[in-house]
Design a protein around this nucleic acid. Structure first.
Lengths: 280, 280
DNA sequence: TTCAGGAATATAGCATAACTACATTCTGGC
DNA sequence: GCCAGAATGTAGTTATGCTATATTCCTGAA
């Protein structure tokens, strides 16, 4: 986030700088790829300033020192897409639909990469692996995620079931027992039904793992939360973005569990369907 | 290019290393984000090796020294462009699983953005929109895609059904009739069953739209192909990548159809489930 | 104009990091 | 068991990043 716009920030703050630092800003701004291979002494000489000036320059942007600065500068040099959601409208051509769909997806995943806490994934995987049986709850468009998770977990040999629909969910949540896990997918984590399911499952002694917004009511009644940022206007639409992110989280869980179970190639689930390999 | 595949190269060369360097490779591979903030001494201590071993490790990959290595490592950590699949292995930490999953997904989508032909999407959308009814065929892990497509198309008011399982698929393909469309998701386009379904559906007068590899047998017996590059070793594994791409293609189709149907906000499907909005 | 007072910048020194030459240990073949 | 040759570690050198302190430069009021 801050990394990507580092050069921009430098050029921006340039105005508020005194001559010496400004010379540094100019050079860094004009030849950042050279800077990352320079020592402090070389850079200070090139800019006709002293070492400490370079230090102050780096500190100004909140870095620990020159090394830290160089590291972030290097990272900011590799191109990446900005975090903006591009609305698709009636005026958009097919070309645009394709492009924007891809870009929005890229953005969503990059956000996930930045915000997701690996420790939460680890904890979720741990609970799931220890479960005697897992109920996978989802509603609306997230149902597909539940089915996906069911498919993959079963390939790992886990006992689980996707639970779709109000009645089915109630039935299972109310009969939850110790040793079981309830895995809940929720875009926002504010849906009443979803929270009630979590509470019921927990009352029965099951552990609740939820993939939802971190500060949501659902998160508060869960044993483990894998926090995925919801998108602003989630209530009114069903954007591709969060679905995609939940999808990736599912994959991470599967991979983590596969590794913990000793599989050698965790990202390659075996092709079980023998007839599927009947190629032509 | 070389920068981005650094981690992969490390894991690859690991095999040819002697114990000491291998310990370094393991740690760098499992916690690269920590490494870039470590000094040589810290790293050597962590890996229980000596400083020069670290040096030799860096030189092995063609870098000037440790600093140079760290810089490139840092760059390779930011999610970005290049088209390399980073294998996930047993030695990977949770941090790595999260990172690699995201990066692989980003790569897949970027490939899609480059290779996908919008005209093919447009043609597919046109046929689907004109259909009186659509059968959505998929097998194995792609079944989830079929369910996803079913869900979304139905939200648009289209008549369609996901057809999973051999018998169900045959039943529908053999009774296909003019005016209908068969939408087929296939990773490779080489599966025998899939091709036979396409031929049967077409014989009955239905139009066949397939999402598959462009040069596959399935493509040859389809009325419209939305070509999505398969991944190398697709036969043996179920990678996230192609699934993700098919997923996006589905979204593009939905969006395109929504636009053609006159919806004003094509990327926001309406939340149909009224109880779902019962928030707390 | 002059002279504080404070900010901006440079100097000098220190601790530590990266790197190198050389010694030691390990490995595999006879 | 012994001996090349490779693999790894030890110790020492250089230079780097960083800090405490001094100097210079600017601003503004007497």
């Amino acid at each position: 986030m801050t990394a990507a716009s580092l050069l921009q920030r430098i050029l921006q703050e340039r105005e508020d700088m005194r001559p010496a630092e400004r010379r540094v800003a100019d050079f860094v701004g004009s030849a950042p790829s050279k800077v990352i291979h320079m020592s402090m002494a070389r850079l200070s000489e090139t800019c006709s300033v002293s070492d400490p000036t370079i230090m102050r320059f780096c500190r100004r942007f909140g870095f620990d020192g020159y090394q830290d600065f160089k590291l972030h500068l290097a990272q900011s040099l590799v191109p990446s897409a900005p975090f903006v959601y591009e609305q698709i409208g009636p005026q958009d051509s097919i070309d645009n639909i394709v492009r924007k769909t891809c870009r929005n997806s890229l953005n969503a995943i990059q956000r996930l990469a930045e915000d997701l806490d690996p420790a939460q994934v680890a904890e979720g995987a741990r609970l799931l692996q220890a479960a005697s049986w897992t109920g996978i709850y989802a509603t609306g468009i997230s149902e597909v995620n539940a089915l996906d998770a069911e498919h993959k977990f079963q390939r790992l040999g886990m006992r689980c079931q996707a639970l779709l629909g109000r009645q089915v969910q109630w039935m299972h949540a109310e009969s939850a027992r110790p040793g079981e896990v309830a895995l809940i997918f929720s875009q926002s984590g504010h849906t009443k039904q979803t929270v009630e399911v979590a509470v019921a499952a927990r009352a029965g002694g099951a552990r609740v793992v939820s993939v939802a917004a971190g500060d949501s009511p659902l998160a508060q009644v869960s044993d483990a939360v894998i926090a995925v940022l919801p998108y602003d206007r989630t209530e009114l639409m069903t954007p591709l973005a969060s679905r995609l992110n939940h999808h990736l989280v599912t994959n991470m869980l599967v991979t983590a569990i596969a590794i913990a179970s000793g599989s050698q190639f965790p990202d390659q689930l075996p092709a079980l369907d023998s007839w599927q390999t009947d190629k032509i």
